[in-house]
Design a binder for these strands. Structure first.
Length: 872
RNA sequence: GCGGGCGUGAUGGAAUGGUAGACAUAUCGGACUUAAAAUCCGAAGGGCUUUGUCCCGUGUGGGUUCGAGUCCCACCGCCCGUACCA
C-alpha cells in the first residue's frame, strides 16, 4: 500500500475484531462492568448521518472504557413497531412485517462497515414475538400490581375515514387523507398509572447528577407539582343534579379578582347541559373541533359560551359569578373547572375582553401601580405587591405569602382545602393500530375484561386473514378489529368464547425496557436476575434531546414498575446513571424554482460550487436538519465508500461540540480524510526509517516510554512533554464528552510531531501514543498505524496510556498584566512564585510604571497562574 | 400559547468569571512542478490622516464585578418538546 486506503484497512481490521470476538460481552464478576447504550434506531431502511454521529459517540466511550479495564456491554437493536411500516403498507401494498425486517437487514448492512464495537449477538427487534411476548408478560404483572388502569381519553377522530389519527396525521386541524376537520372524541383506553409515581419521579431527579440540568428541568416542569386550593362554588340554583362546581387553582390569592367560573366542554356539567340544550351541544361540538395537542388547544381561538347559570362567591354570597363553558379548559388537569381572574392571567384577560366580562385588580405593582388594561399583571410569586381590598387584610406581601394565607384561611373556615396536584397525566398506551404489541387481555361477556394467561403468550399478530388471504392495509382503521378470526378466543377465566382486545401498545412501551432486555436478550422471562444485577444500570446513555421528556420519563417509570414486579433490582429504579444528549446533523439546502415558482430541492451530490450540472445557480438556504423532503441529505454509505468509515467518524466528532448540531460539509469531510491520510503517511515514513536501520524501536510502548526520560536532549524533551500533555488533554476530552476539543488537541499533537526534530525513538513513542489516542475515534486507522509501528496485538486491547504528571507541569507561566481590566503587558514568572512577588514584578513592568505615573495603585489583583490586574 | 436550549471572524467552533477567536475549513501568498493536482511553509476579526501592546469587537439594550462570551434583567432571531412521529 503506497497511500492511505481506507477500504483495505477497514475491511482487514473489522475481520480481525470479528475473529477475535473482542466485542462479545460476557458476565465477569472480576472486572468492573460498563454499559454504554445509544438510543436504538427506528428501522427506516437507511442509516443517516445522525445515526453515524450517535453511534460513533457511543463507540468512542465504549472503546475508551474497554481500554481502561472495563468489561463493556455495547448492544444494538431495533425500535421496530410503529406507524411508518403501516403507512408503507397502505401506500405500496406490502406487509409491515416484511417491510420492517427487510429494512432491518438493509440497515444492519449499512451499519456494520462503521466498525462499531457492538456485541451483535445480543441484537433484537421489538417486533420479534420473543420480545413483545415478554412485554406482554410485563404488562400482565403490572396489571396485577395495580399499575394499569382503564378509562376514557380523548383522541383525534376523522369523521370521514371513521378512524383515529395520530397527531402527526392531523395537519392544520384536518385529517391527512380525508382532509376532513378532525374532532376530539372520547374512547375507553388502557393507561399506565405513571401519575401514581409522579412525586417520586420528580424527587428522584435530584439524584441524577450526571444528567444534563436542562433535561432534569424539563422533566420537572413536565411533571409539574403545584400546591393550590381546591374549593367549590355553589350554584345559585341547582342544575341537573349539580349543586356546586369544584375548581382547583394555584392562585387562590386572586379570588377577589374572579369574574367568571369556567368549565371544560368535557366537564360533566357541560355534558349534562348539552343533553337538553341544543345550543350548548352546538357550542361543545364547535369547541371539540381541531386536534388534541396541547399546542392546538392553547394557540387556537379562545371560545366561550355563557350557560346562564351563576354561582355564589364563597366570600360574599351576594356576589354572583356567571358560569361559562370555555374551549381552553382541559378536563385532564385539576378538576376541569377554573375561576377566571383576568387581571392576573393573560388568557382570562383576553377571554373577558372578548366577552365583556369585568376586570378587577387584586393587587398592583409597587413600582407602577396602575390598573390592568390589556396586559395582565403576572409578577413572580416572590415579588412584593400592593394588595387591593385583600380579604385577610394583607397590604404589601408577595404572591406566595398571600397564597399561603388564603389556603390557611380556607381550611380554617372550611370552604376549601390545600392540595398538591401534578400536571403529569397517566400514560395512555392504547393504539388502534395493527403494527404494535397486542395488549394481552380478553373481553368476555360474562367475566368482563380478563388478562390472558401467561402460558398463552405471546399473543401474536396475525400475518394474514387466514388461508393466505392478505390483510388489506389500505382501508382506514385497525386491521385487527376487522380480522375475520383473530379476535376469537376462549375466556381465560371461564373458558367460554370471548373476544381479544384489538388495541396494540404505544411504541414508547417497547422502548421503555429494551435496555433491560439487552442484559439477557434470549431469556424466556423478561429479564434474568443475575444478568440484570451485573449489567444494570446503563452507565452512559446517549441520544437526542427530542427524547428529553417522554421516552426518558416513561423509561424511568417502567424501571420502577419492573422493580415492583420483580424484574429489576432496586438500584435500577433509575436505569440511566448518566445521560448525554447529542445535537443533530444538518446540511445546507439547495433550491431552485419551477416555472410556477414552487421550490425544487437538489441533493448535495448534484451541486458543485453552487451550480447544477447544467450550470443553473441554486439558492442556498441555511442549514437545517437533514430531511428527505428538503433533499439536504448525505448518505453515509456514499461517504464510507468514498472516504471510509474513519473519515465519517472523525468528521462527525470533530467539527462541533457533541451536544450541539453539526453541519455536514463536503469540504469538512475531505479535510478529515486528508488529515487521516497525513497521519497514515507519517507512520509509514517512520516505519521506512526503521527499515532503513534507524534505532531500536520494536519495543512495547510502555518500555519505550519508560526509556524516554527528560534531560537527554532538549528536542526530545519538548516532544516528550507534548506527548504527555496530549495524553492528558485527550483523556480529559473523551471523559467529558469534549470530543471536538480532544480532536483539536490531536491536531496540535500531530502538527508538533511533524515539525519536531526529536530523535526517531521519541517520535516513535509519540506516534504510537497517537495511535492509542485516536483509536476510539478512528479505530481502523489506529490499528493500522499501531501495527505498522510494531505495536503488540490489537490497539483495541492495549491499555489506555497515562500521563506522567512531571512531564505535563511547566516551570514558568506567562501572565497577562491588565490595567483597569485591559490587557497592557505580560510577564513570565516561575509557576510557584508567591503572590506578593508576582505583584512586585508586575509593578515593575514599564507599561505599569508609565500608567501609574508615580501614584500608588488603588488595588492589585493577582490570580495565581492566570492574570494580574492593576486598578488605578 | 407554554416549557427548555442556542446565538462568538467569511465558515464550523475554542475559552474552571481572568490574554476572545485555540484547532479546523474556505481564502490569499510562497516552495516544489514544464504545468496542474497532491504535499510542505506562511498570512489573516474589523478600523485608522495617529500602525500604537492604539481604538472597536462574542444577536440587541441595560446591570453586577477590579475584570463578563461566561452571571443577572428585558428584548430579537433560530432550534427542540408540547403527551397517538419515533
Amino acid at each position: 500500500m503506497s497511500r492511505y486506503s481506507a477500504a483495505e484497512i477497514e475491511e482487514k481490521w473489522q475481520k480481525a475484531w470479528n475473529d477475535s470476538g473482542i466485542f462479545k460481552a460476557e458476565r465477569d464478576e472480576s472486572r468492573p462492568k460498563y454499559y454504554v447504550l445509544e438510543m436504538f434506531p427506528y428501522p427506516s431502511g437507511r442509516i443517516h448521518m445522525g445515526h453515524v454521529r450517535n453511534y460513533t459517540m457511543g463507540d468512542v466511550i465504549a472503546r475508551y472504557k474497554s481500554s481502561t479495564g472495563h468489561n463493556v456491554l455495547h448492544p444494538m437493536g431495533w425500535d421496530a413497531f410503529g406507524m411508518p411500516a403501516e403507512n408503507a403498507a397502505m401506500a405500496t401494498g406490502g406487509h409491515p412485517k416484511d417491510w420492517t425486517y427487510a429494512n432491518i437487514a438493509e440497515m444492519r448492512g449499512q451499519m456494520k462497515p462503521l466498525g462499531l464495537s457492538i456485541d451483535w449477538s445480543r441484537e433484537f427487534a421489538t417486533c420479534d414475538p420473543e420480545y413483545y411476548g415478554q412485554q406482554q408478560a410485563l404488562f400482565l404483572d403490572m396489571l396485577e400490581a395495580g399499575l394499569v388502569d382503564r378509562k376514557n381519553a380523548v383522541v383525534n377522530w376523522d369523521p370521514v375515514d371513521m378512524t383515529v389519527l395520530a397527531n402527526e396525521q392531523v395537519i392544520d386541524g384536518k385529517g391527512w387523507r380525508s382532509g376532513a376537520e378532525v374532532e376530539r372524541r372520547e374512547l375507553t383506553q388502557w393507561f399506565f398509572k405513571i401519575s401514581s409515581m409522579a412525586g417520586e419521579l420528580l424527587d428522584a431527579l435530584d439524584g441524577l447528577d450526571n444528567w444534563p440540568a436542562k433535561v432534569r428541568l424539563m422533566q420537572e416542569n413536565w411533571i409539574g407539582r403545584s400546591r393550590g386550593l381546591q374549593m367549590a362554588f355553589d350554584l345559585t340554583e341547582a342544575q341537573d343534579g349539580f349543586d356546586k362546581i369544584e375548581v382547583y387553582t394555584t392562585r387562590p390569592d386572586t379570588l377577589m379578582g374572579a369574574s367568571f367560573v369556567g368549565i371544560s366542554p368535557n366537564h360533566p356539567l357541560a355534558k349534562a347541559l348539552e343533553a337538553h340544550d341544543p345550543k350548548v351541544a352546538a357550542f361543545n361540538a364547535e369547541a371539540r373541533r381541531g386536534g388534541t395537542t396541547e399546542e392546538a388547544v392553547e394557540t387556537g381561538e379562545k371560545l366561550g359560551y355563557d350557560t346562564g347559570l351563576t354561582v355564589d362567591h364563597p366570600l360574599d354570597p351576594n356576589w354572583k359569578l356567571p358560569v361559562w363553558i370555555a374551549n381552553f379548559i382541559l378536563m385532564d388537569y385539576g378538576t376541569g373547572a377554573i375561576f377566571g381572574c383576568p387581571a392576573h392571567d393573560q388568557r382570562d384577560l383576553d377571554f373577558c375582553r372578548k366577552y365583556g366580562l369585568p376586570v378587577v385588580d387584586t393587587f398592583l405593582s409597587l413600582k407602577d401601580p396602575k390598573p390592568v388594561e390589556n396586559e395582565a399583571f403576572v409578577p413572580a410569586k416572590d415579588e412584593k405587591v400592593k394588595w387591593v381590598n385583600h380579604f385577610a387584610g394583607l397590604d404589601e406581601a408577595t404572591g406566595q405569602e398571600a397564597i399561603d394565607v388564603t389556603i390557611d384561611k380556607a381550611e380554617a373556615e372550611g370552604w376549601g382545602e390545600g392540595v398538591t396536584k401534578f400536571r403529569l397525566r397517566d400514560w395512555g398506551l392504547s393504539r388502534q393500530r395493527y403494527w404494535g404489541c397486542p395488549i394481552p387481555v380478553v373481553h368476555c361477556a360474562d367475566c368482563g375484561v380478563v388478562p390472558e394467561k401467561k402460558e398463552n403468550l405471546p399473543v401474536q399478530l396475525p400475518y394474514d386473514e387466514g388461508d393466505g388471504k392478505p390483510i388489506d392495509f389500505s382501508i382506514p382503521g385497525n386491521p385487527l378489529d376487522r380480522h375475520p378470526t383473530w379476535r376469537d378466543c376462549a375466556c381465560p377465566a371461564c373458558g367460554k368464547p370471548a373476544k381479544r382486545e384489538t388495541d396494540t401498545m404505544d411504541t414508547f412501551v417497547d422502548s421503555s425496557w429494551y435496555f433491560a432486555r439487552f442484559t439477557a436478550p434470549r431469556a424466556t422471562t423478561p429479564t434474568v436476575a443475575e444478568d440484570a444485577d451485573y449489567w444494570m444500570n446503563v452507565d452512559q446513555y446517549i441520544g437526542g434531546i427530542e427524547h428529553a421528556i417522554l421516552h426518558l420519563l416513561y423509561s424511568r417509570f417502567f424501571a420502577r414498575a419492573m422493580n415492583v414486579t420483580g424484574h429489576l433490582p432496586t438500584k435500577s429504579r433509575e436505569p440511566f446513571d448518566a445521560l448525554f444528549t447529542q445535537g443533530m446533523v444538518t446540511h445546507e439546502i439547495y433550491q431552485t424554482r419551477d416555472e410556477k415558482g414552487r421550490p425544487v430541492y437538489h441533493l448535495p451530490e448534484d451541486v458543485t460550487d453552487g451550480k447544477l450540472a447544467d450550470g443553473t445557480t441554486v439558492e442556498i438556504i441555511p442549514s437545517a436538519k437533514m430531511s428527505k423532503s428538503k433533499k439536504n441529505v448525505v448518505d453515509p454509505v456514499n461517504i464510507i465508500s468514498q472516504f471510509g468509515a474513519d473519515t465519517a467518524r472523525w468528521f462527525v466528532l470533530s467539527d462541533s461540540p457533541p451536544e450541539r448540531d453539526v453541519e455536514w460539509t463536503a469540504a469538512g469531510a475531505e479535510a478529515a480524510h486528508k488529515f487521516l491520510s497525513r497521519v497514515w503517511r507519517m507512520a509509514r515514513d517512520l516505519a521506512d526509517q526503521r527499515d532503513a536501520g534507524v534505532g531500536e524501536i520494536d519495543k512495547s510502548l510502555q518500555d519505550l516510554m519508560d526509556e524516554l526520560q527528560l534531560g537527554q536532549n532538549p528536542l526530545d524533551d519538548e516532544l516528550l512533554r507534548t506527548t504527555h500533555k496530549a495524553i492528558d488533554e485527550v483523556t480529559k476530552g473523551v471523559e467529558s464528552f469534549g470530543f471536538n476539543a480532544a480532536i483539536a488537541r490531536i491536531y496540535t499533537f500531530v502538527n508538533a510531531i511533524q515539525k519536531s526534530q526529536a530523535s526517531a525513538k521519541t517520535k516513535w513513542g509519540a506516534m504510537r501514543t497517537l495511535a492509542q489516542l485516536m483509536s476510539p475515534m478512528t479505530p481502523h486507522l489506529a490499528e493500522e498505524i499501531w501495527t505498522i509501528l510494531g505495536g503488540e496485538g490489537l490497539v483495541a486491547r492495549a491499555p489506555w496510556p497515562t500521563p506522567d504528571s512531571a512531564m505535563i507541569q511547566d516551570n514558568t507561566v506567562t501572565l497577562p498584566i491588565q490595567i483597569n481590566g485591559k490587557r497592557r503587558a505580560e510577564i513570565s514568572v516561575p509557576v510557584e512564585m508567591p503572590k506578593a512577588e508576582v505583584e512586585k514584578a508586575a509593578l515593575e513592568v514599564e507599561a505599569v510604571i508609565k500608567a501609574l505615573d508615580g501614584a500608588a495603585p488603588k488595588k492589585v489583583i493577582v490570580v495565581p497562574g492566570r492574570i494580574v490586574n492593576v486598578v488605578i
